[in-house]
Amino acid sequence: MSMPHRAVRRLEKAETLDKVAKPVSSGAKRVVRPRLVRNLLSGTNLGHPLHPALTDVPIGAWTMAGLLDAVGGREAEPAADLLVKAGIVAAVPTAVTGLNDWSDTIGPERRVGLVHATANSTALTLYIASLVARARGDRRKGKALGFAGFGVMAISAYLGGHLTFVKGVNVNRTAWQQGPDEWTPVLAAAELAEGEHRTADADGVRILLHRTDGTVHALAATCSHMGGPLGEGTFEGGCVTCPWHGSTFRFADGGIERGPASTPQPCYETRIQDGRIEVRVPPAAAPAEVAEHRAHRARRRLARTPAT
């Protein structure tokens, strides 16, 4: 295990950070609770989380400012100053969206996220001080503060990458689920009364079934946001609300009514055949894509079959 990885692992186990992380997280949850705020900050209507996209702006601006400060010379000073300003302005919405996402984490992710946010705040403070020094004509001090800010930002970026790519924070939890592309029986129709719900297995994927107005609807049972069990959620108005973070999905099409989810819930076609509820992935793909998908699934089944 590399030294950076060991350091992050220690942060994950640093329970003393919970003394600060828990109350700050609780306060953030109250601030982002309104539906409009939650949807906006989560990227609900964007199709994926908003925070990662926004981070590119301050990181890019401050990196280029550092490059110009290092090798640009006097002629590049106005451009470097402009880039520092752009990074400062962009850091504000980036921090707000990050706070929204972080408020949903617990345990190791919340601890690392707290240090990530602290490092970002430190970098922002250093860049503001750098901008002030530049405005006063003290370019040497301004550059030094900028380089310090860049160093702290690099550490913070590493922690952000760890949260996303190692811990899977805000990664779509249904991305690798492949439901059946052929009609597959999952439950006896008599076992699902009007207004009731059940979870069942469909070719290795957990499916949430709900009957309303005589129609059986089916969604993936794992919340796309953070993997919450939708079968333990609440059901109202043709929607299901995740018990973990309150993401609300429509049964009709899997669309999102309320974040923090930003990826729609996989939705399946249903029918009742010979007294059994059957489900399948909607055949929306082109015929060639369907054939390729079926061949891939056949290879997976073959790989799982024990050798004789």
Rank of each mutant, 00 (worst) to 15 (best):
V84F: 08
P52W: 01
R111I: 07
H225G: 10
P180W: 02
V31W: 04
H245L: 12
Q178C: 02
I88Y: 00
A252K: 15
A80F: 07
A175S: 12
P58F: 00
P34Y: 14
A70I: 00
K141N: 13
T234K: 14
T174W: 02
R140K: 12
V31G: 08
R294H: 11
A175V: 14
G275N: 03
P34H: 11
F147R: 13
K13Q: 14
V281E: 13
K167F: 14
C242D: 08
G254C: 07
A190T: 09
H225S: 08
I59W: 01
V92C: 01
A286C: 01
T308E: 06
V169L: 05
D201S: 13
V115A: 05
T215D: 10
F165K: 14
L54S: 02
T125E: 06
N172L: 05
G275E: 02
P49L: 07
A117F: 06
W183Y: 14
A220M: 02
K29M: 06
A14P: 04
N170E: 10
L67M: 05
G161N: 11
V171E: 07
V31R: 05
T212K: 15
L41C: 08
S26E: 14
G214M: 01
L219R: 10
R30Q: 15
R304H: 09
A307D: 10
E257Y: 07
G149W: 10
G107H: 06
R38V: 02
A53N: 01
T16E: 12
E257P: 07
C239T: 15
V112Q: 12
L82T: 15
C223Q: 13
M64E: 09
A286Q: 06
K22C: 03
S262R: 01
C239F: 07
L126H: 04
A288V: 05
G151T: 12
A148C: 09
R280P: 02
I272R: 14
L187R: 12
L209R: 03
V31I: 15
A133K: 15
V32T: 14
D203T: 04
Q178E: 14
